[in-house]
């Protein structure tokens, strides 16, 4: 099955040394309320030094944390039809997109990069929760499809780091179709016996959890991450009862057999490299 033929190869662009806004501000930990100095927080990979809470990690920081020597090239973002429904609620969707782009400096809620981890070539895709809640529409779906195709072409593993509130409802049925398209994307890795590792971070919900996020060969979750299909509020309204403690948290999912392991952000790179070493060290049949 070769559908690579009609696919536009994304261009690679080397990530420039990016200067971040100096982290000289104080942040408050949402879990323990401790005030933490920005530089200290950055050095600690945005994990609260007091209670271990894993705060949201932006895509660039995620790439730098995972790739060897902080070196990587971006996969060019795919071109997709913008605002296919001409959607308006109280505000129009185009203006929401525009302000999200200004705020995040990214085109949409998914960005992929190619580089090495422990010497292995690997494609890593990261969802940007700051971009309309990391919601999945055409751009995210197509980004994941192209990242998967790129990985298959280079015969390298794919790692997807999720953070999403679910489908981008402003793109209607076309956003729903991305559940199928991203599933198809990771199926290509499976068909080619290339590892696909899902790293679920806080929060991973709705249509993203019910598609590629839950289909990893290996599923890793960050501690305390919310991982859910239905929203807790919807469930509470439906059953009219309280929810169990820790409901829909990473630890709860592990207990119920839905994730392989919970990995602290400080250990993530090392664990992933070990997994890549193991999955890449296959024996030749019949020898």
């Amino acid at each position: 099955m070769n559908w690579l033929l009609d696919y536009v190869r994304p261009k690679l662009s080397v990530a420039k040394t990016e200067k971040d806004v100096p982290d000289n501000l104080w942040d408050k930990c949402p879990q323990c309320d401790a005030m933490i100095y920005g530089q200290e927080l950055a050095k600690n990979l945005y994990v609260c030094p007091h209670c271990g809470y894993h705060m949201y990690l932006r895509p660039r920081k995620r790439f730098r944390m995972l790739f060897d020597d902080e070196e990587y090239s971006y996969l060019e973002a795919p071109k997709v039809k913008e605002d296919p429904l001409n959607f308006k609620d109280t505000k129009d969707y185009r203006s929401k997109l525009k302000s999200a782009r200004e705020k995040t400096k990214f085109d949409d809620a998914f960005v992929a990069a190619f580089g090495k981890m422990g010497g292995h070539g690997v494609v890593i895709g990261v969802m940007n929760f700051n971009f309309i809640g990391g919601s999945m529409g055409l751009a995210v779906g197509e980004g994941i499809v192209q990242a998967a195709q790129f990985a298959v072409e280079r015969k390298v593993p794919l790692i997807l780091v999720t953070a999403s509130g679910g489908a981008r409802m402003q793109e209607g049925i076309l956003s729903l179709m991305q559940m199928a398209r991203t599933t198809l994307a990771v199926k290509q890795l499976k068909d080619n016996h290339l590892p696909y590792i899902a790293v679920l971070t806080n929060p991973t919900t709705g249509g993203v959890s019910a598609s590629f996020a839950m289909l990893g060969d290996i599923t890793i979750a960050e501690p305390d991450a919310l991982i859910a299909f239905a929203g807790a509020r919807v469930i509470k309204e439906t059953i009219k009862a309280d929810l169990p403690a820790g409901f829909q948290k990473a630890e709860y999912l592990k207990k119920h057999g839905m994730v392989d392991m919970i990995v602290n952000r400080h250990d993530l790179r090392e664990k992933l490299i070990t997994l890549l070493n193991l999955l890449g060290n296959t024996y030749t049949k019949g020898e």
Binding site: L184, K187, F229
Partner: peptide, 24 residues
């Protein structure tokens, strides 16, 4: 899909994702 505690515990998200995959 049913939104409820049992559904979440038993992996509603995984069940749907696998069904999508199976179709392909």
């Amino acid at each position: 899909a049913f939104p409820g505690i049992e559904g979440e515990e038993r992996g509603q998200a995984e069940a749907i994702a696998s069904c999508i995959m199976e179709g392909f």
